Amino acid sequence: MAAGGDHGSPDSYRSPLASRYASPEMCFVFSDRYKFRTWRQLWLWLAEAEQTLGLPITDEQIQEMKSNLENIDFKMAAEEEKRLRHDVMAHVHTFGHCCPKAAGIIHLGATSCYVGDNTDLIILRNALDLLLPKLARVISRLADFAKERASLPTLGFTHFQPAQLTTVGKRCCLWIQDLCMDLQNLKRVRDDLRFRGVKGTTGTQASFLQLFEGDDHKVEQLDKMVTEKAGFKRAFIITGQTYTRKVDIEVLSVLASLGASVHKICTDIRLLANLKEMEEPFEKQQIGSSAMPYKRNPMRSERCCSLARHLMTLVMDPLQTASVQWFERTLDDSANRRICLAEAFLTADTILNTLQNISEGLVVYPKVIERRIRQELPFMATENIIMAMVKAGGSRQDCHEKIRVLSQQAASVVKQEGGDNDLIERIQVDAYFSPIHSQLDHLLDPSSFTGRASQQVQRFLEEEVYPLLKPYESVMKVKAELCL
Rank of each mutant, 00 (worst) to 15 (best):
F208E: 02
D248Q: 01
I106V: 12
R337G: 01
V115A: 09
A273T: 12
C483L: 12
K187V: 11
R303P: 00
D349I: 05
D191K: 07
Q409T: 08
I122C: 08
S448Y: 13
S23M: 08
D441P: 10
L355R: 01
I122S: 03
L132I: 13
F232Q: 01
R329W: 00
D441K: 11
T202F: 00
D216C: 07
T321H: 00
G231M: 09
E343R: 05
G214W: 10
Q375F: 10
A260N: 00
A273M: 14
R309P: 01
Q241L: 02
K101F: 09
I287F: 00
P298M: 07
I436L: 07
E463V: 09
H7D: 08
C340K: 03
I57M: 05
A146W: 01
I238R: 01
L461K: 04
L42F: 01
S151A: 13
G361V: 05
V92H: 00
A453P: 05
N297C: 00
A127T: 06
R270W: 01
L17T: 12
F208M: 12
P446N: 04
D191Y: 12
F36H: 15
E60V: 10
Q286N: 01
D420T: 05
Q241K: 03
A322E: 10
G418D: 02
H400N: 02
C173P: 00
E80N: 12
Q428T: 14
F327E: 06
R452P: 03
I106W: 00
D216R: 07
Q61C: 09
E376H: 05
D144A: 14
A2Q: 15
H107P: 00
L484F: 15
I238W: 01
S474F: 12
Q456M: 08
P435R: 11
R296A: 07
E280A: 03
V262Q: 05
G419P: 02
K82W: 11
T166N: 05
I106R: 00
A146Q: 01
A3D: 15
S323P: 02
T38D: 00
R303S: 02
E383K: 01
G394W: 07
E220R: 10
A348I: 12
Y243L: 09
L443N: 04
T244H: 15
I62P: 02
R171V: 00
L142M: 12
A127S: 11
H437T: 09
L121M: 09
S261I: 04
C98I: 12
L222T: 05
L252D: 08
C173E: 02
P378N: 01
T38V: 12
R20Q: 05
F74Y: 12
E250V: 08
I106K: 00
R452G: 07
V457K: 05
A348K: 01
Y466M: 15
M225F: 11
T201E: 00
G200H: 01
L174I: 09
I386P: 01
V315K: 03
M181V: 08
T111V: 00
R337C: 00
V413A: 08
K229L: 07
M278C: 11
P471V: 15
V429W: 09
S15E: 10
P366F: 02
F327D: 02
G361E: 15
Q205T: 06
G104A: 12
F36C: 15
Q51P: 00
G169T: 03
M299G: 06
L46E: 05
L406R: 06
D117H: 03
S290N: 01
W39G: 07
N71Y: 12
G214R: 12
L186H: 09
H97N: 13
H310N: 07
I436Y: 05
E50V: 07
D129A: 10
R33E: 12
E464A: 07
F232K: 01
K415T: 07
L222K: 04
V429L: 13
G197Y: 02
S301P: 05
L209E: 11
E279T: 06
G197S: 11
N297K: 00
K284Y: 15
L406M: 13
I403M: 10
T239V: 07
S407D: 00
L179E: 01
I265F: 14
I427W: 05
R371E: 00
S253C: 12
F74T: 14
Y472S: 14
L121P: 00
R20C: 00
L444M: 15
D59S: 11
H400V: 06
I62E: 01
A308S: 11
E376V: 05
M181K: 08
L121Y: 03
G361L: 13
F195H: 03
L17M: 15
I351S: 05
L183A: 09
A3S: 10
P293A: 14
V414N: 03
A256P: 03
F345W: 03
N274A: 13
H400G: 02
R329V: 02
M387T: 12
R20K: 07
V413C: 09
L84Q: 14
A77F: 15
H217N: 12
G288K: 03
P133D: 09
R396V: 05
V465M: 14
A411H: 02
K66S: 09
I269S: 03
K233W: 08
V465W: 04
V457E: 04
T267Y: 04
R303E: 01
F160S: 07
K477A: 11
V413Q: 13
H86S: 00
L135D: 04
S289L: 01
A322P: 03
